[in-house]
């Protein structure tokens, strides 16, 4: 039986609703709605914290203060920004394809949020524990590239379009090393199920068994989330802002939301696959999970504000000629390792 803090809360809540309504089916339905609302709440709160954290970390690394005027230590800066974005004029380019251009920011959020259905936040606190868990994440995450391409295409603007094309090239070359680095983890676990992957790390975290896969995963995840040194899709000094060039106000805010949701996804995936998920001594699972996730978010921000932007050919060459062969080598080495381990024990 699961003993996590979140599961206990959910059980208490479901028992309470059950005694109030007395119909199990309706209770289950209400619980599913509540769980979805909880996931969206987690995403929104995490995005607000990340935006503030990004600025403070950036300020710290560049030896300046960062936002410090709105509220104590500037924590209300993100709120002020949201109000500013909401009050902005909604500018639609005259020659853009109105329908495609309008739905792109909304569509982009769907794959970004859908993957949260299979993330284990705590012992048993997982929306659906699919048998194909991690494969589902890969399949859904790869869909976001389509939105970048449509956004770039529908803006009818050369910079947006180049950005969209770059997104396709970049995502294709980042997803393959990423999938292969995950495959090594799956080989050790013997399952695609997220809860099994976390349970398999109760003894040793996979970061110690699979250090090479961990490094490849971090690098390809940086490419996947379009962050410096691989933010070629936006590349301000080259193509203004890529697919986001023509978007302003709340439409741009939706792109921003999806971007930080993806950063959270990257941190959660790293935590689940390599850092033992919610497992840890003394403290409850959810606390360990939050600590590890924010540690990983800090690492991604550290990378972003430390390295300069690469060129597109450097990035593609690095991904196909160095990361992919390394990932393939890692799979073969893992296969031999698993074989020897099974033979010895």
């Amino acid at each position: 039986m699961h003993s996590g803090l979140l599961v206990m809360t959910a059980d208490m809540l479901s028992n309470g609703i059950d005694s109030l309504i007395g119909n199990t089916l309706i209770t289950q339905f209400i619980m599913v709605i509540l769980e979805i609302v909880a996931i969206f709440a987690v995403i929104s709160v995490a995005v607000i914290i990340q935006v503030y954290m990004e600025r403070r970390v950036c300020g710290f690394i560049q030896d300046r203060l960062g936002p410090n005027r709105v509220g104590p230590f500037g924590i209300l800066q993100t709120v002020a920004d949201m109000i500013k974005l909401m009050s902005k004029e909604d500018i639609i380019p005259a020659k853009a394809e109105r329908v495609l251009w309008g739905i792109t920011p909304m569509l982009l959020f769907i794959p970004a949020a859908l993957v949260y259905a299979v993330f284990p936040f705590d012992d048993g606190a997982i929306f659906t524990d699919l048998n194909i868990g991690i494969f589902f994440v890969l399949a859904v995450m790869s869909q976001s590239v389509l939105m970048f391409l449509i956004g770039g295409f529908a803006s009818e603007n050369k910079y947006s379009f180049i950005g969209g094309m770059r997104a396709v090239a970049q995502m294709l070359s980042s997803e393959i090393p990423m999938a292969f680095s995950i495959m090594a983890v799956v080989m050790v676990t013997g399952s695609l199920k997220m809860s099994t992957i976390v349970a398999a790390q109760s003894g040793t975290w996979f970061v110690f068994i699979q250090p090479l896969a961990f490094i490849i995963f971090i690098i390809s995840m940086t490419m996947e989330t379009n962050r410096t040194p691989f933010d070629l899709v936006e590349g301000e000094s080259e193509i203004i802002a890529g697919p986001f060039t023509e978007y302003s106000g709340m439409r741009w805010a939706l792109f921003f939301l999806a971007e930080y949701t993806n950063l959270l996804t990257a941190a959660v995936l790293t935590t689940t696959l390599f850092l033992g998920g919610w497992q840890g001594p003394v403290l409850p699972g959810i606390v360990w999970f939050i600590i590890k996730v924010f540690l990983m978010i800090f690492v991604f921000m550290w990378i972003r504000w430390t390295f300069p932007r690469t060129r597109i050919d450097q990035m593609m060459g690095f991904s196909w000629k160095i990361l992919l062969p390394l990932a393939l080598f890692n799979i073969i080495a893992t296969g031999i390792g698993v074989y020897i381990y099974n033979w010895m024990y």
Partner: peptide
């Protein structure tokens, strides 16, 4: 999942 990854991804 393969249908989404391979076919929809190929679009």
């Amino acid at each position: 999942a393969v249908q989404i990854m391979v076919y929809a991804g190929t679009v």
